[in-house]
Nucleic acid binder design. Sequence first.
DNA 1: GGCGCAATGAGACAACCGTCACGTCGCGGC
DNA 2: GCCGCGACGTGACGGTTGTCTCATTGCGCC
Lengths: 235, 235
Amino acid sequence: METSSLLRQIPLFAAFGDDALTRLAARSVARTYAAGHVLFTTGEICRGLYIVESGRVRIFRTSPAGREQVLHTEGPGKAVAELPLIDGGPYPASAMTDVESRLVFVPRAEFEALYRDNPDVAVAIVHELGRRLRHLVHVTETLAFRDVAARLALFLADYAERSGQQTDQGVEITLNRTHEELSFELGTARESVSRALKQLTQKGVIEPLARKRIRIPDVGRLRTLSRPGERANYE
Amino acid sequence: METSSLLRQIPLFAAFGDDALTRLAARSVARTYAAGHVLFTTGEICRGLYIVESGRVRIFRTSPAGREQVLHTEGPGKAVAELPLIDGGPYPASAMTDVESRLVFVPRAEFEALYRDNPDVAVAIVHELGRRLRHLVHVTETLAFRDVAARLALFLADYAERSGQQTDQGVEITLNRTHEELSFELGTARESVSRALKQLTQKGVIEPLARKRIRIPDVGRLRTLSRPGERANYE
DNA sequence: GGCGCAATGAGACAACCGTCACGTCGCGGC
DNA sequence: GCCGCGACGTGACGGTTGTCTCATTGCGCC
């Protein structure tokens, strides 16, 4: 795809004039990265902004012990690392491609020039940061209050509503993640994901179909299980 | 204090002209609230913005079971609830005064008019949201990776550096919080805070002086204990 | 100075979960 | 088709923590 028309579709740059956009396109670099490529790590000085054209990027923190906690994942049309770009600080987390992804890199100096000339960008950024903030509040609450099974149920329910296919047997989803990647999203260990999946299967709220493919007969019931207070201890 | 000169000191409104500021001051309401006053709760439609003149306000989420997780606390000069104001959504969390506090309430319509007329506000908001976002990343990581004792050690170390008094015996801090309030900050139960405090005392990294008063001989050592990986299991 | 209530300390107990260990499964490459 | 390796399932085990319960302390208020 032409870089300038790609940029046009991104909320961040929607308000730009054609010349600003073509200039930006000329100075940014589009590249395809393999799955598992590290874009940047926590604490690094910010070099620029990445925009996801295709694929998926996850933003996460790691513990010294090697555990990982995903903060958010961004797909096509979304940008990554706006925050350090606008407050001048280091990257607050690390970023890695989950799958093979095509990304557009906008160098820091280029973005800053844009930011100075187009105050409208600030409005777009405010909205984007707001979205992140709400999401992170959600992640925080989930970590603080819910056990692993409930977090998994919540994740699956959200996933089903976002990208599940409705059938007459219920909603079917294709998890393009390994259990280990799931454990990173949920802030837990791989084995706990296995156990939680078994728990949900035994309760009948999910049905494994094939490798990474799951049917959810009743998303509402799954969501009920995701609420704390209704612990999974009886039966 | 005169409301308009108070508003002047707030980063959010620093760029405003005198007339805009006096108009804003005329339409906002300053009031003193007792400790424990609920300003708003999660999910409510946003009525406006609160600015802390004196005292302390905590922003938190609650679980159905009654547990609480503090997301951030704001003191004098800081505002609360900018996010729902700018993205039009509901309050993402609840807010309560920790101690007796004097707050200035800016009605939503008033703020929106200001926001339209002064695009500079967006820049200030971006910075404020950025600060929140970084803080919340910190909270999330802490919840995901650290046990209660480590979270407490981290909290105390931060607190000591922010508002401790240096003595020749070490840094002394006055925790103007009950153990229960501490447990809300740390996302745990009151009893666990008691246990963690005892643990840290036995290790010698903190010394209880009086009710709510603690001496920290070596903040660096306390901070070391706050890192995960060095679990508190031996000795 | 005593009363009352909130704050704190402490013990018991079970659930939850991270970790280690090991076995199995499945898929791609040769 | 076999081999190898990554992904997954499972059991055991111990540490951590939430919850319940009750004793104790301390402080404010009459």
